[in-house]
Design a protein around this nucleic acid. Structure first.
Lengths: 128, 128
DNA sequence: CGGTATCCGAGCCGATACTG
DNA sequence: CAGTATCGGCTCGGATACCG
């Protein structure tokens, strides 16, 4: 299994370290998407594949395994044919989603500002 | 200039997308560390280098440029000898730090739980 | 349906050396 | 003091093909 995250080891005593760890967890191109898609309730593999636009089967699997590993979601296999697997957020993950709300608010407040800042920066310094 | 982040383009309409963008911004091994180190007030390059344990000159520069590009910090050059450059968080970044507080709280609440979940997962599935 | 295996390019990041 | 340049390893992540 590939997908080992960067070693965000202890850079400072406590605060920043814990924060860096959680950010590292929801980093990567797909984790947030999966977390949000699963927020509504139990969801199947193929449903996730459709919900998270652009994700490949491989990356969905890896992302799910990582989240499962961190105890953020559960994987339930139903022994039926055709196979059926459901993923569901744990309570911990639901709390995480709530904690992320503040961040989402910030993002939506300053979205255009940041886009503008980028444009300016790229204009002044050479990026084209 | 290297350091182009992964393309977290529109995966779903609004919410998750904005969130994914901000997470992408504070991703990478060092951004959080720099953000936290600069939270106390204006800080010089070398001070940052010491504050963010383990960071290289190169990565500090790249991280600073990215944050500056996104309008999260300002770079002030004082024309003196020896050179003096100060970095300071913008108001937007300060708001961001506040929004991150909820996340930090979550991280500290569930830190051990998650570490445990990992251990269990790695024990059951083969990771060794 | 729900995965895995393999190949491969792109970019992050560290080490090292050099500069105004 | 505050950077930049270059090289190279490693991992992330896409494409494709295959399996129970």
């Amino acid at each position: 299994m590939s997908q080992r995250h960067t070693d965000v080891s202890v850079q400072f005593g406590d605060h920043a370290c814990a924060l860096a760890e959680v950010v590292d967890r929801v980093s990567g191109k797909w984790a947030i998407g999966v977390l949000v898609a699963a927020a509504a309730g139990p969801i199947r593999f193929t449903e996730l594949e459709r919900a998270v636009e652009g994700i490949s089967r491989r990356m969905l699997t890896l992302t799910l395994r990582n989240l499962e590993r961190d105890g953020l979601l559960t994987r339930t296999v139903y022994p039926v044919v055709p196979p059926k697997v459901e993923y569901e957020l744990t309570d911990v993950a639901r709390e995480l989603n709530e904690s992320l709300a503040g961040l989402t608010a910030w993002a939506e407040r300053h979205r255009t500002t940041i886009a503008l800042a980028r444009k300016e920066y790229d204009a002044q310094h050479g990026n084209g």
